[in-house]
């Protein structure tokens, strides 16, 4: 992504993509076709686009939730971990053409990566019904091998901090006793407390009221503020939330591939920016797309200059 204002020493990008293509059976066109793309770390990256533009597929490929088939010779999809200093090449994490992994060795490697480096938050909370609220939150930490005392400490702190009084004060144990917003906050805790390097969120606010949605995005920003090496990649339909909170935006088009732009997380000139963003997402005409992109970049440059000024 161009134009990063990060002044820290050069770090490897979080993800490197090249020639990544995703085909679904019985579909003539690939649902996703990424030429060259590098995603930086330490940012809240929002992925925008119309329905069916491939943004969720993009997220699933990065998060090892879906295989990046077909794997071509020029396909390159790699995750660069600063935590263990390893470059994870996805072509090695998935079986090749034969897709044969009888002993699930590659599956185990993918599971380990998801367990230790990634966190996931979905539109639906996907809490496990048979576990208590606390156990749901603690599960990824348990799978990572975090000692019980540390798990309990973190869970208690977070429940209190996120005002999940329904658990701490009313003693609610079952996930059924939570409201929609509370369930999503529990899911957020589950995704964050095991200290992932990347948090993937797929339309996490789609079922929430604006206030709860705001909560979720502020938590993302707060988490990145705490840990500058962590990254949140979030797919959303909300241009408002994207413009208000993210540092980077990836826009997937319908009929064209994608564009990236730096953002200034602010509500300044939001209506105008939203307008151009909508034009960008919905336009099929390359000229219109280029124009909207240029105008948004100019707007953001101006905002950045204004925020950076005296």
């Amino acid at each position: 992504m161009s134009g990063s204002a990060d002044a820290s020493p050069p770090r490897p990008p979080l993800f490197t993509l090249s020639g990544v293509c995703k085909h679904f059976p019985n579909e003539a066109r690939p649902v996703l076709d990424v030429g060259e793309l590098e995603l930086p770390r330490g940012r809240l990256v929002t992925v925008l686009g119309r329905s069916g533009s491939g943004k969720t597929t993009f997220l699933k490929l990065l998060g090892l939730l879906d295989p990046p088939y077909p794997l071509r010779r020029d396909t390159r999809l790699a995750f660069h971990s600063l935590r263990d200093g390893t470059d994870y090449d996805y072509a090695e994490l998935y079986p090749g053409r034969a897709r044969f992994d009888p002993l699930f060795r590659r599956d185990a490697a993918r599971a380990r990566l998801r367990r230790t480096h990634f966190g996931f938050l979905f539109q639906e909370e996907h809490l496990l019904n048979q576990l208590s609220v606390r156990d749901n939150i603690a599960l990824p930490m348990l799978l990572r091998g975090v000692p019980a005392a540390e798990r309990e400490r973190r869970v208690e702190l977070m429940l209190e901090a996120l005002q999940l009084d329904v658990v701490t004060q009313r003693g609610a144990k079952s996930v059924f006793e939570l409201s929609k917003g509370e369930r999503q906050r529990v899911a957020l805790l589950r995704a964050l407390l095991h200290d992932p390097e990347v948090l993937f969120a797929d339309e996490p606010t789609g079922n929430l009221d604006p206030l709860n949605a705001e909560w979720i995005f502020r938590m993302f920003a707060f988490w990145i503020g705490l840990h500058p090496e962590r990254t949140v990649i979030v797919v959303t339909h909300s241009t408002h939330l994207a413009l208000s909170h993210s540092q980077s935006i990836v826009v997937f088009g319908k009929g064209w591939n994608y564009l990236t732009l730096d953002n200034v997380p602010s509500r300044a000139r939001e209506a105008e920016r939203q307008g151009w963003l909508n034009v960008l997402m919905n336009a099929d005409d390359p000229a219109a797309v280029g124009d909207a992109h240029a105008r948004l970049q100019a707007l953001h440059a101006g905002l950045a200059a204004a925020e950076g000024g005296p």
């Binding site: 990572r144 091998g145 975090v146 000692p147 973190r154 702190l157 901090a161 095991h194 200290d195 840990h227």
Partner: peptide, 18 residues
């Protein structure tokens, strides 16, 4: 912020326990 920072702090790797 402080308590959240503590709860969301980095985790040490605990080999062999998982």
């Amino acid at each position: 912020r402080e308590r959240l920072g503590s709860a969301l702090g980095p985790l040490e790797e605990v080999p062999g326990r998982a």
